[in-house]
Design a protein around this nucleic acid. Structure first.
Length: 842
RNA sequence: GCCCCAGUAGCCCAAUGGCAGAGGCAGUGGACUUAAAAUCCAUUCAGUGUCGGUUCGAGUCCGACCUGGGGUACCA
């Protein structure tokens, strides 16, 4: 703490305007350079095809307030890539925008009796100013906001194209409903099964909602991940894979016996991954909350089912999801016929079978499925083993046998192993015409409608005669009304838009009769599923994006953002990209070639939060240490994907290092353009090795190690100035210029100031990555180590070009080696010229 | 429960299968200073979570386990 204070004082003491020349002063640099960069349009891509294009993108922010430490880390990382690519000579597209629709703005508007746009755009302006101070290298002319009518016009346009392709549709589905507040709740507004606002127990209510048919793309979303292997973090790919949840098995049809004239015979299909266990099925279960259960139930059981369904509805998510909860269910009075054995299986309704997975019905094989076994034991249903896994009886132990084994009690399947029996059973079912191989997915369609105001209106008109009628393209955008504010936006059981009668009531575009607008708005994930496409031509008026520009830039070469978006945003963006590709508007089938997940910024081992009181204010850190020091600290703290614990790092140490680097620029006395060839050979060699290694490290996103290499070079250069060839040596200039260019990726103000001190015009961002002289990478001599039985026994100074034979002879001739060998026979000699010899005695 | 990721010095972190240390923080000593800060120089500190395996050689590869973090969970 004392030392941090010391750093603070030392840096801060030089920030006043009258400070002496030659002293590092971050405040002066931060005041000076942004205007210069703006004038030079350093970060505006040429976009003319004269240079190879590269697109780097940070996940765009939500304007919740001013920037915080998390933004500072994420954008520091993305900026390294952007500035690195620019130094390599690419035409870099690095844009910024805001994901500016969303509920917080609506809540703020209710509280302040204002329109959500006021709060939203004020915050955006604040963040934009902070980003400019933070010196992220973005093209400000491409700035966009998803809540701009010029943006959401195209969100609506895309929705219509999805609608035309049958990929946007409405259906009834159960949603969270608060009976007290008379409103639908988002999942995150349901806390422990109760309404976060009033505490009432949340129930399910069936409402008509809009969906995107993402399930049509499940296979491609899964398969195309193969090409992302090694380019996206493994865990993100794993999470997406789990989310999509591909499961191979079979559909099997069961005949349900007739119960009466009103309840005639019918067929029901189940999905199972274990068709081999069909002989072990002893009962049948349908999801209690599905319409199927109501259809099946017979008279005397109807009341029990109805009571049971009420109980299930009242269950909180927490209770429902607990695997510890005892199995519950009711008998429906019906029986299913096992297609292989003709056996009658009682049909139960239970909540452990989910209505929206598979077909909402299962065949229950208690001997080989733990859940079925738990249910069988709770209701005294029979258990029959059909796979002998050599373990004890499931009925006695209560543990289902799920592993490999030999089929028994299973007719023609007897004697087969589990893995042989699965395809054999499918073949039998297919011959009987009562089943087939089937691949099931866990992924569900994307519920996109929200009963909220501050989102993209759904461009559909409901006409009593014509039904759903899309708003014609030339009438887009359907704008949000501007006269609703404050209490008008509070939840009243329907979307706030429904109350805006001027807005809702329109003529049907088809028949001209009285009709009403759809009053729902879109999930904000829709807005963010295509913003990366809009950035290629944000002012384009003929479509969502310029069809030529989009293929010039897409796919995004590097995407940077938090792992919290590992599933939803990234899956949705991939889905949109594929649909837009299928529409023939885009060549790419994946939006983001490479993905980097930066870690979180913690304080004292924990995420910063108000309740913990451990928040660190970004603005205060910037005031105290300077933008460059904060950026450098974020990058140097560790690998980009690791969390940064602000309690473990030293922004004052970063500031000290930057001042040290900056002073090199002040000290150099040779003229710009001085040839380096006559300079200090050792320093030159180090400079070129540093640049060479930095390139490889940057490609691998090892930014922290890159910074360490720059520090090494700074230390060596300082030594040459103070105790070596001196400040006038051409190698010192060469090294210092390399430091400035490398540092420009991490500390743009310091680097720019150094560049100027070295006599170069702005901007260092365009200086170009230093060229490496390969001949300087070769060292004059190398220390070869000589091991005996893996232990180091001698070191030899050898030429890097030494042959294996030469090195072997030298090593064997070593006195130290001979002493250790002590006359023993030699079994092998491993030679790795020029670095190592390992002599293995017999 | 299942699936990922990570365990190296007091701390943050480096190390194409080849001398465990590049860098930083903290500590210690010194130079400079009337003194302090800043600056500069020097320097202490671990055998890599545990056990086993592969190899001439393992922090690195393989297996099991321990600890921590993350994801997911009645998905048939």
């Amino acid at each position: 703490m004392m030392n941090e204070e010391a750093g603070y004082v030392s840096v801060q003491s030089h920030t006043d305007e009258n400070s002496e020349e030659g002293v590092y002063n971050f405040a002066r640099m931060e005041a000076k350079w942004p205007a210069v960069w703006d004038d030079l349009k350093v970060f505006t891509p040429l976009d003319d095809g004269s240079k190879e294009r590269r697109y780097v993108l940070d996940m765009f922010p939500y304007p919740s307030g001013d920037l915080h430490m998390g933004h500072a880390e994420a954008f520091a990382m993305g900026d390294v890539v952007s500035r690195y690519w620019r130094q390599l000579g690419y035409d870099v597209l690095h844009p910024i925008g805001w994901d500016s629709f969303g509920l917080p703005a609506e809540n703020a508007a209710i509280k302040r009796n204002a329109h959500p746009s006021e709060w939203t755009y004020a915050n955006i302006d604040t963040q934009a100013e902070s980003f400019k101070r933070y010196a992220i290298s973005v093209d400000w002319s491409r700035r966009l906001q998803t809540s701009d009518p010029e943006y959401y016009r195209w969100t609506q346009w895309l929705f219509k194209r999805f609608y035309e392709r049958g990929l946007a549709y409405r259906k009834d589905s159960p949603v969270n409903w608060c009976p007290q507040d008379q409103t639908v709740l988002a999942n995150e507004q349901v806390v422990n099964g109760t309404c976060e606002r009033c505490g009432a127990i949340v129930t399910k209510k069936s409402l008509n909602q809009w969906y995107f048919k993402i399930t049509d793309y499940a296979d491609r979303l899964l398969e195309d991940m193969d090409a992302l292997k090694g380019l996206w973090p493994d865990r993100v790919l794993a999470m997406q894979r789990n989310w999509i949840g591909r499961s191979e098995g079979a559909h099997v049809s069961f005949v349900i016996e007739a119960a009466s004239d009103e309840k005639p015979q019918r067929e029901l299909t189940v999905f199972t991954t274990r068709p081999d266990t069909l002989y072990g099925a002893t009962f049948f279960v349908v999801a209690a909350d599905s319409p199927l259960a109501l259809d099946l139930v017979t008279g005397e059981n109807a009341e029990a089912l109805s009571d049971y369904r009420e109980q299930v509805k009242a269950l909180s998510d927490i209770e429902r999801q607990s695997t510890e909860r005892p199995k519950t269910g009711v008998f429906t009075g019906r029986f299913a016929i096992n297609p292989l054995t003709g056996e009658k299986l009682p049909v139960w309704a239970a909540d452990y079978v989910l209505a929206d997975y598979g077909t909402g019905a299962i065949m229950a094989v208690p001997a080989h499925d733990q859940r079925d076994l738990d249910f069988a034991k709770a209701f005294g249903l029979p258990v029959r083993s059909v796979v002998d896994a050599g373990s004890s009886d499931p009925e006695a132990t209560g543990i289902a046998t799920v592993g490999e084994g030999t089929l028994i009690n299973s007719g023609e399947l007897n004697g087969l192993s589990k893995s042989e029996a699965i395809p054999a059973a499918i073949e039998i079912l297919e011959k009987l015409g009562t089943g087939e191989k089937f691949v099931n997915f866990r992924l569900r369609d994307w519920l996109l409608s929200r009963q909220r105001f501050w989102g993209t209106p759904i461009p559909i008109i409901h006409c009593p005669d014509c039904g759903e009628v899309p708003v014609p393209d030339d009438q887009l955008p359907v704008r949000l009304p501007e006269n609703l504010r404050g209490e008008d936006l509070s939840p009243k059981g329907t979307s706030p838009l429904a109350a805006a009668s001027d807005w809702v009531n329109v003529d049907c575009p088809k028949c001209g009769g009285a009709a009403k607008r759809d009053t729902d708005t879109m999930d904000t994930f829709v807005d963010s599923s295509w913003y990366f496409l809009r950035f290629v031509s944000p002012q384009f008026t003929e479509g969502p994006f310029d069809p030529e520009k989009v293929n010039d830039w897409m796919p995004v070469g590097q995407y940077v953002g938090g792992v919290e978006h590992a599933i939803l945003h990234l899956l949705y963006a991939r889905f949109f990209t594929k649909v837009i590709h299928d529409m023939g508007m885009l060549e790419a089938t994946e939006p983001f070639s490479r993905l980097l997940n930066q870690g979180q910024v913690l304080n004292g081992g924990k995420a910063m939060s108000k309740s913990l009181g451990n928040g660190v204010d970004l603005g205060a850190q910037l005031d105290r240490f300077g933008v460059d020091a904060v950026r450098l600290t974020m990058v140097f703290a560790g690998p980009p994907e690791d969390d940064v614990d602000w309690a473990d790092v030293s922004p004052s140490g970063s500031a000290k290092f930057l001042a040290r680097a900056w002073r090199l620029g002040q000290d150099v006395t040779s003229e710009p353009g001085t040839a380096a060839t006559s300079g200090d050979r050792v320093l030159r060699s180090l400079t070129h090795r540093c640049v060479h290694e930095a390139k490889a490290l940057l490609e691998g996103h090892k930014f922290n190690v890159t910074v360490a290499k720059i520090m090494e070079l700074v230390n060596a250069t300082r030594k040459v100035i103070d105790t070596g060839a001196g400040a006038g040596d051409p190698a010192v200039r060469e090294a210092t210029e390399a430091v400035a260019v490398l540092l420009s990726l991490f500390a743009p103000y310091t680097a720019e100031d150094m560049w100027q001190a070295l006599g170069h015009p702005a901007s260092v961002a365009n200086a170009g990555f230093p060229a490496v002289d390969e001949s300087l990478l070769v060292q004059a001599s190398i220390t070869a180590i000589v091991q005996v039985a893996g232990k180091v026994r001698d070191r030899l100074e050898v030429s890097p070009n030494i042959t294996e034979d030469q090195l072997r002879e030298l090593a064997l001739g070593s006195a130290a080696v001979q002493k250790v060998l002590d006359g023993r026979e030699i079994r092998t000699v491993v030679v790795r010229a020029p670095k190592l010899v390992n002599i293995v005695p017999a």
